[in-house]
Write a protein that binds this DNA or RNA. Sequence first.
RNA 1: GCCCCGGUGGUGUAGUCCGGUCUAGCAUCGGCGGCUGUCGCCCGCCGGACCCGGGUUCGAAUCCCGGCCGGGGCGCCA
Length: 428
Amino acid sequence: MRPLRPSSLSRDHFNRKVRVRGWVGDVRDKGRIVFFTLHDRQDWVQVVVKPPFIEHYRAIGGLRRLDAVIVEGNYLPSKIAKRGAELVAEKIEVLSRAAEKLPIDPTGRTPVELPKRLRYRILDLLSDRSRAIFKVQETVLWAVRTFMRKEGAIEVITPKIIGAATEGGADLFTFDYFGMRAFLAQSPQLYKEQLVIPFEKVYSIDTFFRAEEHSTSRHLNEFVSIDYEEAFADWRDVMVVLERLLKYICEKISEENEQELNTLGVKPWVPDLPLQRITFDEILDELKRRGVDVQPGKDIPPSALQALTKDLERAYFITEWPTELRPFYTKPCDDDPSHTESFDLNIGPIEVAGGSTRIHDPEVLARRIRECGLNPESFQTHLEVFRWGMPPHAGWAIGLSRLLMTLLELSNIREAVLFPRDRWSLIP
RNA sequence: GCCCCGGUGGUGUAGUCCGGUCUAGCAUCGGCGGCUGUCGCCCGCCGGACCCGGGUUCGAAUCCCGGCCGGGGCGCCA
């Protein structure tokens, strides 16, 4: 029979002989009596080693933190043990010995700075704080899939190895593909647009790559994007989908991750809908009123936005971005081609998602590609699809880790990625 | 690409401004010993560090120069 886990022990096991497996935690060696905690990744139980078994304990050389063991013994209620019960060991089987000296403290009690935590990430993930982040991430992923399925959207997987056609803009990683020049995809953009013809509503949760040499606490070169695209929809339609999804995610986190939020010191939060909507130009006007000038054709610097956040809701849309700041496939407004049917979703000063109505007319799209300094030739296989019944469509993309870092109030996106890839780090 | 800041035992820090009292303090950690009710156990002993090179000086962890490594910000960012 497989051994039990510490977290599965209950009153039903009182006064019975049980086998329990787990990792050794704190060891309190009193000489003729030894206590240690036995952990799984949810809970733990105290094990007591007493004579005559103490001799066997000495014979196996004792135990230390992180040893993987199976303990056999009686599970007894106890007035002294803080948990009200303890396991009295009669046999200990050592499955794996941990190193004498660990590079960082896996309990999280001794502080460790982020770069060292990432260098020794597996040990770092043993701390409650680090694991809490990724438990919440799991809730987010699950919530997205549940929500999308109810919406009637289908999850799609698009290529990461791509050929000539690129979007321009962000730098791509290049490499040799059997003698051909290939790129790592920076987004599923072109594919998800094409896929609305056969599927109408599509979404993807996938990893993408950007070769930009930035060095900030909110950029990485490998990141997970949650993408959505819908046929016969415009920007306003998909903004509603996005804000409903955000609310759904926040509700699920509040319901399912109370303990994790507590560990992270974060209060549950669910936004009221509709979210605040403010145009790009209104932001500029407000900044100008406060004496901050943003140069034309430039994005709003995070520092400027920071100054405004106390007058905005926690989550808000910035809409109708200047055409020059948006990629070629973004549809300009009918009454004002200098602005676009586009939006960003911000939480605090951080951009969490962006989206727009897309151009669906192949002639207009080809023109915009040229205007943006790109070669329509290299978009041939993309443009041809637009003659096969491409309806008006719109969509957006959420940066998964950006969302996580804002919801959990993390100061660095690296904390929200298991093994972050930035300009300087490839290992581990 | 540009700018700023920083490197002290395995980890986190004190000391650096204002050179000497530093054979570098504290906590954690590791080793050994002690303890039969601990629970972030406790007690005792021991171990382990000034990034590298050059300079100033009677004297450098501390000041200066160069290098290396790290962090942050800006720019860029469909």
